[in-house]
Amino acid sequence: MSNVLLPIDDDERHAKDQIQTVLNLPLETDELTVTVLHVFTDNPNSASITQLRSTHLIQEALEDEGIAVELDERSNDPADEILSYAEDNAVDVICLAGRKRSKTGKLLFGSVTQDVILNTNLPVLIAGTDSVE
């Protein structure tokens, strides 16, 4: 069984990119578990991962394909919490959403993505920017 950690934000386009990336993995869907993780940096209204539209999109699309989906949420620094979760759980790969960037920005990933890539020994997939509709 393979375990994919799917850290998400509230951007539905990113969620769609991550869905497509997971569905394109060369694995049998019944051998795959995806943990959707959202890290709240500021949550004065005590929101939950289940309230995010991106969560619903991912959960529905992956479960429709026979992929087991688990939800988790944390609060604090996103990169630190992603790395901590991956270290504390049986994660095989981390799949982060990519972002379109300027020519100069293409030299660097976003700060969370860069921190995760530089501080884990796990494979990190960067979901493309061609969304599925």
Rank of each mutant, 00 (worst) to 15 (best):
D130S: 09
V116C: 03
Q59W: 03
V22A: 12
V124Q: 05
L108T: 07
V39Y: 04
M1K: 12
Q51Y: 10
V116R: 07
Y85M: 02
N45G: 09
M1C: 02
A97N: 04
N3T: 15
N121Q: 13
I58K: 07
Q59C: 04
Q59I: 00
V4S: 01
L122S: 01
V4N: 08
D11H: 14
N119R: 13
L25T: 06
V22K: 09
F40I: 03
G105W: 11
D17N: 15
D9P: 03
D11T: 13
D42E: 15
I67S: 04
R74H: 05
I49T: 02
K100N: 13
V36H: 02
T29S: 15
A97D: 05
P7K: 05
L57G: 06
L118T: 01
S54L: 14
G105C: 12
T120N: 06
N43P: 03
D30H: 13
I82C: 08
V34A: 05
K106P: 03
A79E: 02
L62E: 09
V116I: 07
L23F: 07
L118E: 12
N43L: 09
D92K: 00
D115Y: 06
D11F: 02
V124A: 09
K100T: 12
L6R: 05
I58R: 06
L6K: 00
G128L: 08
S131G: 10
L37P: 02
I58F: 11
E12I: 11
E31M: 14
S131F: 11
V112I: 13
T113L: 10
D77L: 04
K106A: 11
V69C: 04
T29K: 15
V124P: 01
L83R: 07
P44H: 08
Q59Y: 02
L122W: 02
V22H: 11
Y85T: 02
V116Q: 12
R101Q: 07
V91K: 04
T129N: 14
L32I: 06
E31N: 13
V93I: 15
D10P: 01
V124S: 11
R53S: 15
A97C: 12
V39R: 01
I49H: 10
T21H: 14
G98V: 11
N24L: 06
L122P: 04
V34P: 02
L52F: 06
L122G: 06
D10T: 13
E87N: 10
A61H: 02
V39P: 00
D9K: 09
I49S: 05
R13W: 08
D9S: 14
Q18P: 00
R13P: 01
N76G: 15
L108Q: 07
K16S: 11
K100V: 11
N3W: 06
I117V: 14
T55G: 10
V132L: 14
